[in-house]
Design a protein around this nucleic acid. Structure first.
Length: 658
DNA sequence: ATAGGGTTAG
């Protein structure tokens, strides 16, 4: 869909694939404001004895001291003349304060009053239950109403939409249309949110978009930002952009939805560009903006730009809330500056579970195993309840830090917190045992798992076999992975490397052939480095960079120096090249080496070089960069998919254990 | 009486 405004109006061209809204095109004649449904076949006598009434006195007691109920007492005592508006006001208060039980009581009291058919009140009731998260109550209230208007339907749609039940929200829409009720901007804002949250297949972005146009709601700002957000959540950034460009009036929310869309799509650079564009257009960044932008910076490791945005936030006088603080912390951690991450963590007034988890993750990824464990113990001392992610962080830290007994201990500790280990936790334990060389124990652990092992579980064992050069077990693990997930290139490469380093080139070639036959493709390796607010990206064996000749000359120079210092190229890490000389040639142009040479050419002497990589670092690059850090006297930080490597003085923070 | 945008792991 290139042009959004050219969507056909549904009344003239009836789409053939109307699944979600089969009757959308037949309802434009009537513009009913409220619809009375036929009386339900329920014995009226049932109503006064409904559970709500029976609970009344009980609830009353527990809320006696509460303010709103005092008003009900006054009504009961005859000293206050009730009006429908009084009840609605009371209910509004309960909704704001999320006092479900108090609201129930007002509801019950209201039903005994002479206003019991007031539509506004009943609509508010649906809103009360929805906002309190009690969708079943909202639905019951809705079902019991005989007179419903558009607001009634919208309130319930909103309830489902806000409580993460998009499917139900979407199915209500055609039913509403069928009754001749005309949706408005409120209705569409909620519907679009639901549509954005629906799984592909359940939703119908284009149809609901067409309906917005049909009912003249497309120029509403709320509808507009929901619309662009909906497209963004389905990964359709081109459409989202088009919607954004065509908005009659933009506001912070529309900008935020756009930026968040790019940030989620791992398109950090565009998200950042849009952020500065937003400033230029005169819009104030909000908490939403900053958290999206910081997570965008985190994903591409843009430390310098992240610092700029941080400064921008401080200048604008924004308070550091947990929500923004967490993304800021994560940005610093993921951009390689664990010290700054820690500073943000210390400075947070209120730390929630995400703050703790982010800090733990940061520590773990930087290889500070013991520190992670200490932090976790501090968290426990303070009585913060850990969750599944917390344990995943801690177990990962133990695994990366070689803390085997600690890892086992914390795995057992999950039970104490009434947390059932999920498959990810099992993966981490296999990784923990495997890394430590306890391959038999790892296998035994897998065999004893109470749940079905997934490809990731066997993959962890395979990785360990690669590390400890165990070809037989590696082959076995790889076969299990191939059965469960035949399309992942990673395990193929691992097995290839296992055979290659054992000198079993025939077997290696077989793996290679297998990959070719099944069409499994290795993700192209790339590295990037941020210099003066610009992110430079390098793909292996790609010559397109304008400075490429200088870069290669630089690497050759470095290569000579580190070889003098004892670096021996490890050609086992190259896939598919036959003769050794060629293998070494290819090895020189691994993207992290190119990025490093580029950074050495362009960064001031002494500055720390920070390189990001989209896959795990290879052993040869790891060894080469260790030598570079010594020979050139540089601090070099490399972030790969798993963790950080801080190179300095010829060694790495991972202790060659990664 | 009813509405839209943000975080942590693997």
């Amino acid at each position: 869909m290139k042009n959004l405004l050219r969507l056909p109006p549904l009344s003239s061209t009836r789409p053939t694939n109307l699944t979600v809204f089969p009757v959308i095109s037949t309802f434009f004649a009537t513009s009913a404001t409220a619809v009375t449904e036929p009386e339900p076949p329920v014995d009226k006598e049932d109503f006064p004895s409904s559970p709500i009434i029976q609970e009344k006195d009980l609830l009353r007691k527990s809320f006696k001291f509460q303010s709103g109920l005092h008003v009900l007492d006054l009504i009961d005592a005859g000293s206050l003349e009730p009006t429908a508006a009084i009840y609605t006001q009371l209910l509004k208060k309960c909704t704001q304060l999320k006092r479900l039980n108090e609201g129930r009581l007002v509801h019950a009291h209201f039903l005994t009053s002479r206003f019991k058919d007031d539509l506004f009140f009943h609509n508010s009731i649906i809103n009360l239950y929805s906002k309190c998260g009690s969708l079943e109550d909202a639905r019951n209230a809705f079902d019991e109403m005989r007179v419903k208007d558009m607001v009634t339907w919208t309130a319930l749609i909103t309830g489902y939409s806000q409580n993460d039940r998009p499917k139900e929200a979407l199915t209500l829409f055609p039913r509403m249309l069928r009754l001749g009720l005309k949706p408005n901007g409120f209705t569409f804002a909620s519907l679009l949110k639901a549509c954005g949250a629906a799984t592909p297949g359940d939703e119908s972005c284009e149809q609901i978009h067409a309906a917005c146009i049909k009912y003249g709601c497309q120029s509403d700002v709320y509808v507009g930002s929901s619309l662009l957000d909906m497209y963004a959540r389905h990964g359709k950034m081109d459409e989202a952009c088009l919607v954004f460009d065509r908005l009659d009036s933009k506001n912070e929310v529309s900008w935020n939805a756009l930026i968040a869309g790019y940030a989620r799509k791992e398109n950090g650079e565009i998200a950042l560009k849009q952020f500065w564009e937003m400033q230029r257009s005169g819009f104030e960044a909000t908490h939403f903006t900053y958290s999206s932008v910081f997570s965008a910076c985190a994903s591409i490791g843009a430390l310098e730009q992240g610092k700029w945005v941080h400064a921008h936030m401080i200048k604008s006088g924004q308070k550091l809330t947990a929500f923004v603080g967490n993304t800021l912390l994560d940005m610093y951690a993921k951009s390689g500056s664990i010290k700054d991450a820690r500073k943000v963590f210390e400075r947070l007034d209120k730390r929630d579970i995400v703050s703790w988890n982010s800090m733990l993750t940061g520590c773990a990824q930087h290889g500070h195993g013991k520190e992670t464990v200490c932090l976790f113990e501090e968290m426990r001392r303070l009585g913060v309840q850990p969750n599944h992610i917390t344990f995943l962080c801690v177990l990962t830290a133990c695994s990366h830090g070689g803390l085997v007994s600690e890892g086992r201990h914390y795995f057992e500790l999950m039970k104490k917190y009434k947390l059932e280990p999920e498959v990810e936790h099992f993966v981490t334990i296999v990784d923990l045992l495997g890394r430590a060389g306890l391959l038999d124990q790892a296998l035994e652990f897998i065999n004893d798992m109470p749940i079905q092992p997934t490809a990731a579980v066997w993959g962890a064992l395979l990785g360990a076999c690669r590390m400890h050069k165990n070809a037989e077990l590696g082959k076995f693990a790889a076969e299990r992975v191939f059965e469960l997930d035949p399309h992942d290139a990673g395990p193929h490469v691992l097995l290839y490397n296992i055979y290659a380093s054992a000198g079993r080139w025939d077997d290696a070639a077989k793996v290679r052939r297998m990959m070719k036959e099944s069409g499994v493709k290795k993700e192209p390796a790339c590295s990037w480095v941020e210099i003066e607010n610009l992110v430079h990206m390098f793909v292996a064996n790609d010559d397109s960079h304008p400075q490429i000749k200088e870069i290669h000359r630089m690497w050759e120079k470095i290569d000579g120096k580190i070889k003098e210092a004892g670096y021996v190229p490890d050609t086992n890490h190259v896939l598919l090249y036959v003769d050794d000389q060629e293998r070494e040639a290819k090895l020189q142009y691994h993207s992290e080496k190119v990025a490093l040479a580029f950074a050495l050419l362009n960064m001031p002497p002494g500055a720390t070089i920070r390189i990001m990589k989209n896959i795990r670092m290879c052993g040869d690059c790891h060894s080469a960069i260790k030598h570079v850090s010594k020979v050139m006297g540089r601090e070099i930080v490399v972030r790969d998919t798993n963790r950080f490597h801080h190179f300095s003085g010829g060694s790495c923070s991972c202790g060659d254990y990664w």
